[in-house]
Design a protein around this nucleic acid. Sequence first.
DNA 1: TTATAATATAATGTG
DNA 2: CACATTATATTATT
Lengths: 218, 218
Amino acid sequence: MMINQADHHHHQQQQQDHHDQELLINQLYPSLYSHALPTSGEMRPKRRRRKRGGDGAVGMMKKRKLSEEQVNMLEMNFGSEHKLESERKDKLASELGLDSRQVAVWFQNRRARWKSKKLEEEYSKLKSAHESVIVDKCRLEAEVLKLQDQLLQAKKEIQRITEKCSDGGMSISSPCSSFSMDCGSHFLGDIVDEQYYDNMFSSLRDYGYVNGVDYWPY
Amino acid sequence: MMINQADHHHHQQQQQDHHDQELLINQLYPSLYSHALPTSGEMRPKRRRRKRGGDGAVGMMKKRKLSEEQVNMLEMNFGSEHKLESERKDKLASELGLDSRQVAVWFQNRRARWKSKKLEEEYSKLKSAHESVIVDKCRLEAEVLKLQDQLLQAKKEIQRITEKCSDGGMSISSPCSSFSMDCGSHFLGDIVDEQYYDNMFSSLRDYGYVNGVDYWPY
DNA sequence: TTATAATATAATGTG
DNA sequence: CACATTATATTATT
């Protein structure tokens, strides 16, 4: 039964061994994992697996697990407040028949769990948002290209018309004051700078952005 | 020492009680948390409280923590392969003086840790990518507005010029075939559909996208 | 010094 | 084994 480092010849039995250890410990220190099942939900009709020996024989399974009612109560309290003032802690502990240390630990673990669950949620939200924005970006890029082309055509048109009716009356009236006539280079000189222009059409890059390095986050 | 539901009068001592329990358990099952402290870092100079009994007396520190060397070895193995074939497991266990179950458990926990660490990393990558794309989107929206305005001005210009030199020569040559003259409504009819046009300028919405619900992920 | 929040990690339990 | 849960230990904070 001893699990020593010289003693590795029982791989199929290790779980068993631990179970036995626990049973023994519980016999010697029956209050170690007390819980005492004050509530009803313990003698479940749904008998959990009783891999041999079972609960009745040695007396008292270890009961690491909290009862459903205990958990419900804890969840209620966690729902209303994630922090646990020691007053509330003691109250809960005696109501549930738990060690107040267990209550504290439960809350600590619950906060940790909450944090990682939240992270997962945020991740999937963010992912949807990201994908959606990427779609928008692609559309906008297409839109920009299209508008640029239309503008180019318009300018050519203007040039053509202007040349065609080449009278001296090139006097353009007021609303066109800020309209530039250089069709060749960037039309977007005033809002957009050079560097931006280089990076603007890059949606395709972003698609594989998250699938980069990983595999050994150490 | 009894921690029962009838017994809540020792909140200040519970930690101590647990400590004692561990010491006793180690006496009874000295190999349970063996480890044999092969490395240096175990005898912390910072002795924790030893209100009686203390650690030295019984022999064997409680220390269920794995030694640094054991962890290093495990990490090495984890690095080369996250899964653990039982052959490797046994080999590792005997090399490290650990129960082979402990090795298995370590790998299971390590995989879980790895998974959540990876999630965190992916999240922050995705977040940066998202923010960056949002910036792009804003720029593109501005760009689209600007181009639309320029195009509008160009069309007005064309109209003006056309009216000004109102000869019969409205013959527009080839390159302008697809150029539509309707300045009022959407310029973007062919690539973009109505619904898209409604949703296109929505960058500001996306900023608060991830900070929505949370607070009770139940 | 004490208590506790946050975190890491070990161990257990279940499917 | 994955995954969730319970527990222990350490560190930082107050």
